[in-house]
Write a protein that binds this DNA or RNA. Structure first.
Lengths: 253, 253
DNA sequence: GAGTGGTCTAGACCACTCG
DNA sequence: GAGTGGTCTAGACCACTCG
């Protein structure tokens, strides 16, 4: 399509930056083209077969270079459609000292957010849930799992677990879990969050519409009532390319 | 080496879990073997060529499965030596509300840490450094970059930038930058940290001795004096498989 | 030197998209 | 149906490790 004469991907001979394996040379070459704006966000790259011919390497080598760039979030591939320069991402910031709900947080910055329910129900708790939530024997666990989106773009997966006594009817939870908990006097006032980086697995990657192996933030949150009782245990997965967590720190004792 | 008869990788015919592409079937099969303890941390897998023969797929397909598992931190590969089940990682936790130095933090939990200097010197500042540190025209920037290790295992890369007036002689910094700043009355009391996940680039991966593309935490810290002046601007990269950040949150206004 | 992972090729077929 | 990416093969050679 983009076959205007004289583009970087025109008919000139390609000179790869020397050094190291071919696929890394090709990777750097494409990376530079993107960095210098020769190809813009949204632009299509030549097909893998065309690139292979033009650069005079095998298609496998092209794929290896391209897949590194996909992993780094510089390119996106669409099966049957083509390979494109990734659109610019505006990053979302979330405070690590103020306990707010996702919905309220996004509303405050004027971003329209919606959720897709992945799960809402009462289950037999896992040993971990029993321990963390301090469930009594026979007590069920309410699980509320959502995919969070801004417009069409998935931002995060949130999987919350609460005692079935706190949330007897998970199906009645609306857009905001915290708004719901507020009504029944169970809104947490304090939480401990544990954050780490991990590569996305196949399933979560599919939900978040990015490639498996992309870096993501895994966040575990344990939230407490004023009484010190645990109300909520949530595991979330945030896309690494759209999310920043921000913390303010003071001098420790 | 590990050729006791009757191991999972013995002579029995291999039955892969069905569904999806071959390399994902093989990936799941190896994953299960590790999860069930059939192969233990530190154990060698059969060579790629042997696995290919045994499972009756091409070596390329074996490599694809293995590379996914390396990316996920389940296997490690050593060029010329073999493929091994990754050792168990004990994760390091770092508080996000107390401003402490890395050295002091690790000492408190009884972990021996050492650093390898990557850079210590005075440079012409980048525009970003000038802006964030509030440098005057002509003022230099002191850069202090270290690889942090616990024993032989690299944990993090820290790249700090300070005004050359604050740190005129970067080469005099010892094990702890904060201890050094304390002496000159420039120890920060407050900091803002911004945390995100990103896949490791080739260079940082080499320093941290894990494979490129593994998930890592990228942390940007801006630290302030009591006066409100910025003293330190640090970018760090933490291995995703060894680091947790922990934050306590209270109800926001 | 034998064995291992790392790179690379040429070629095939499948699954998906788009007009 | 033409074109795209996704998977897979058989085979080659290189770079590294280890005894």
């Amino acid at each position: 399509m983009a076959d205007a004469p004289g583009t970087l991907f025109g008919s000139e001979a390609v000179i790869l930056p020397q050094g190291g394996p071919l696929y890394l040379q090709l990777k750097r070459w494409i990376e530079n083209a993107v960095a210098r704006g020769v190809i813009q966000p949204g632009d299509a790259l030549p097909s893998e077969r065309d690139l292979a011919t033009k650069v005079d390497v095998s298609r496998v080598t092209v794929r290896k270079a391209v897949q590194h760039l996909v992993r780094d979030g510089i390119l996106v591939q669409r099966h049957g459609s083509g390979t494109f320069v990734a659109p610019h991402q505006s990053r979302v910031e979330q405070s690590l000292s103020q306990l707010t709900s996702f919905t309220e947080d996004m509303a405050r910055r004027g971003m329209a957010v919606r959720s897709i329910w992945l799960d809402r129900g009462i289950y037999a708790p896992s040993p971990e849930e029993t321990m963390i939530l301090g469930l009594s024997p026979g007590e069920g666990v309410a699980r509320v799992a959502r995919l969070r989106l801004s417009g069409d773009m998935p931002l995060a997966i949130e999987r919350a677990a609460l005692s079935s006594l706190t949330l007897p009817d998970p199906a009645s939870v609306g857009a905001s879990l915290y708004a719901h908990l507020e009504k029944t006097g169970n809104r947490p006032v304090r939480a401990i969050q544990r954050i780490r980086a991990a590569n996305l697995g196949e399933d979560d990657a599919r939900l978040l519409e990015i490639s498996a192996g992309a870096a993501a933030l895994h966040v575990e949150r344990i939230a407490y009532l004023p009484s010190g009782k645990v109300v909520e245990f949530t595991r979330s997965v945030y896309r690494g390319d759209t999310y920043d967590f921000v913390a303010e720190m003071r001098v420790g004792k």
